[in-house]
């Protein structure tokens, strides 16, 4: 089984690479939707590890995404000259630069996840939800007030003046002084996005099916029983939270380097809710269900564009109907896993 999932993972990498070669001929609109699908799968699957498998209700996923996104685009613009001089501007140079900012974004989100997780994971259910929600809002408000990354106007790049001054907007005082504008580079493409989709699916799948990973499920099923068995429940909760945050950070990096512009409002409360809805709609703790829900919920608003202003009403109605008819989600609560 281990071998089979490894084979599947490697063959999907090759497939992603091959498809990427033809990505140029895909209609730009569809291409954008496909990339968003990938990013949403990463977000939903990583939240599923926290909310679905480990049973901790986090409402702050957009916050981790924001940290990864903002940190990475700040790096790849402010340090653009450095990266370009060190690694060059070729395909490989860009790839190395992107790997660095990806890891930086993911790691920063994971570290913040640890910082938030350790004290707040003592809380349960709705209390945890409120704490994580509050945390995500703090992140957003802090970003909104940080001029160095564009504050509430959003961030699209950096003006670097000859005298070394760097700012996200033109500096009035410097007037005519020559400058170079470093826009957020468009690093994200089909390959990178779906590389991480494959990685997170492989990671979560193997984690949940390992002896260690059953610890997550046991924490969800019954914390007291898990503790009686000598399982360190806090450790499992924190580790789910931190790895979930890491991938949310990665999703933020991908999003930033695709959209080429980030605004604090991209990461508001609704974004967190959107990800939670994907997990609930797909069925908490169901990998396939959550992936399908992420795909559906990305495509659905696009399909409904034809009915323009009624779009979001229909979208909401569909969600309500779905919850009334299948409250356990598309693929139910039962965790479909391979046999031992």
């Amino acid at each position: 089984m281990q071998v089979k999932s490894k084979l599947l993972f490697l063959s999907s990498l090759i497939l992603i690479f091959v498809i990427n070669l033809f990505a140029g001929s895909i209609d730009p609109y569809f291409y954008t939707v496909i990339i968003y699908i990938g990013i949403n799968i990463i977000l939903a699957t990583s939240l599923n590890l926290i909310n679905g498998y480990t049973g901790q209700f986090s409402l702050g996923h957009a916050g981790f995404m924001a940290i990864g996104g903002y940190l990475s685009i700040a790096l790849s613009t402010y340090f653009a000259p450095f990266f370009q001089n060190t690694f060059g501007t070729g395909v490989f140079g860009e790839a190395i630069t992107f790997i660095i900012v990806l890891l930086a974004g993911g790691t920063a989100a994971a570290l913040v996840g640890l910082l938030v997780g350790v004290p707040s994971l003592r809380l349960k259910g709705d209390y945890l939800a409120i704490t994580t929600l509050g945390f995500a809002e703090i992140i957003r408000v802090v970003i909104q007030n940080m001029d160095v990354i564009g504050a509430s106007q959003g961030f699209r790049g950096v003006y670097i003046y000859n005298n070394g001054v760097k700012a996200p907007q033109m500096v009035q005082d410097l007037g005519e002084m020559s400058n170079i504008f470093y826009a957020v580079p468009k690093f994200t493409n089909f390959f990178w996005t779906f590389l991480f989709v494959a990685i997170i699916i492989y990671y979560v799948h193997n984690l949940i099916n390992s002896t260690y990973g059953r610890g997550f499920l046991s924490v969800k099923d019954d914390e007291i029983a898990a503790e009686s068995m000598g399982i360190n429940t806090t450790k499992f909760k924190v580790s789910a939270f931190v790895s979930g945050a890491f991938f949310a950070g990665i999703a933020g990096v991908l999003y930033g380097h695709f959209n080429l512009y980030l605004n604090p409002e991209d990461f508001n409360f609704l974004k967190s809710v959107e990800i939670v809805v994907m997990v609930i709609l797909g069925g908490m703790g169901s990998m396939i269900g959550v992936i399908i829900a992420a795909v559906l919920l990305t495509i659905l608003p696009e399909f409904l564009r034809s009915v323009s202003e009624y779009r979001m009403i229909i979208y909401a109605l569909l969600l309500i109907i779905m919850m009334l008819t299948r409250p356990q989600g598309l693929f139910g609560f039962k965790i479909k896993r391979k046999k031992l």
């Binding site: 002896t211 059953r214 610890g215 099923d221 031992l340």
Partner: peptide, 19 residues
């Protein structure tokens, strides 16, 4: 009987041997 209801009997037992 706080057992892990989403795990199989065998997995429940293996969780007991977790340490």
């Amino acid at each position: 009987r706080l057992i892990f209801s989403n795990l199989t009997v065998e997995e429940n037992l293996l969780m007991g041997a977790y340490t």
